[in-house]
């Protein structure tokens, strides 16, 4: 019976296409970033969007949340934000004369942590615990978060004043990080045209429900990553580790995320197996934000070099 109810790859691709189409009603172009953010959701992880202010990070996160249905909460990070502002706290109920737990914004299916590097490290770690374990502990009581639980964090790297950069260990929790990138002229004009008589996001509705998101996440877990793919991922990680300009190499968790993200990526094409192309494509978004480089080298460039030089495992397995 479970077999019949489970989502077929073809159906998953249709659902994802529907969501993508919906998001594109708001976001002009940026197919890759949109797909990456969606892949983050399908893989069951969390996504970090980083770029300059005003490039559409928040808009993307909102459009994604709206398209998926479910509950959506937004945390606007500021230096005076407290952990309890995220997790919620007990409030004295004057009527019943009892303490009553008021859940914070973290208790939602999709959480937008806007400008996460503006919050203090203490608040950041409360958020990141929830991200890592899918549960929060408030006043000694551990509360499990609902499925799906998906955090989209945004940060703007250029703003140095009043920011607390995320430490590497916490950056490691995001399955992938994406940059919006500047729009092309055509895209920019299209954005202006759409905003001429209002904000299109106001008209946006949900196209899939929470149950379908859970099914997508389950389908992602069923995608096959062949031994050759595992060999390839390990070879990539080894090659990065062997580079002399890498100070902080990719962690084991990074490898796990790379495989999971590649599984999610396969679903977009309706495949039930991972191709080395998926791994190649996702290597930079999954790995770049975790790596520490010596000097001024850019992790993305280094990963590009590694990906184009490490041989893929032989096709013949026997």
């Amino acid at each position: 019976m479970a077999q019949e109810r489970s989502l077929q790859p073809q159906r998953a691709a249709e659902l994802l296409e529907r969501v993508e189409g919906n998001i594109h009603r708001v976001i002009v172009g940026k197919d890759r970033v949109v797909r990456l953010a969606l892949a983050g959701l399908v893989s069951g992880g969390h996504v970090l969007l980083q770029d300059l202010p005003g490039t559409g990070k928040t808009m993307l996160a909102r459009a994604l949340a709206t398209s998926v249905g479910g509950t959506f909460r937004r945390i606007q990070s500021t230096p005076d934000l407290l952990p309890s502002d995220i997790t919620g706290s007990s409030v004295f109920n004057q009527k019943d004369l009892t303490f009553e737990f008021v859940p914070g914004p973290i208790f939602a299916n999709i959480v937008l942590a806007d400008e996460v590097n503006r919050a203090t490290p203490r608040t950041q770690s409360a958020l990141l615990e929830a991200m890592g374990e899918g549960q929060v502990t408030v006043e000694g009581t551990t509360r499990t978060l609902d499925r799906p639980f998906f955090v989209v964090a945004t940060q703007n790297p250029a703003e140095f004043h009043g920011t607390y950069p995320l430490p590497e260990s916490q950056l490691d929790r995001f399955v992938l990080a994406a940059e919006m990138g500047p729009p092309t002229d055509v895209e920019a004009m299209e954005v202006l045209a759409r905003r001429e008589h209002g904000d299109p996001i106001a008209e946006l509705g949900a196209v899939i429900d929470v149950q379908e998101v859970i099914e997508l996440q389950d389908a992602c877990l069923r995608v096959v990553a062949a031994p050759a793919i595992r060999t390839y991922i390990v070879a990539l990680m080894q090659a990065i580790r062997a580079r002399p300009d890498v100070v902080l190499p990719a962690s084991m968790r990074a490898g796990v995320y790379l495989q999971r993200a590649a599984q999610a990526w396969a679903l977009f094409e309706g495949r039930d197996f991972v191709l080395p192309d998926d791994v190649k494509l996702l290597a930079t978004p999954v790995l770049a934000h975790r790596l520490g480089m010596r000097g001024r080298g850019k992790p993305a460039d280094m990963i590009g070099e590694v990906v184009s030089s490490v041989p893929i495992p032989p096709l013949r397995q026997h």
Binding site: A226, A228, I229, V274, L275, P276, L315, R316
Partner: peptide
Amino acid sequence: AVNEGAYAG
């Protein structure tokens, strides 16, 4: 066909 064979068996 090669992709299906090598990566999906």
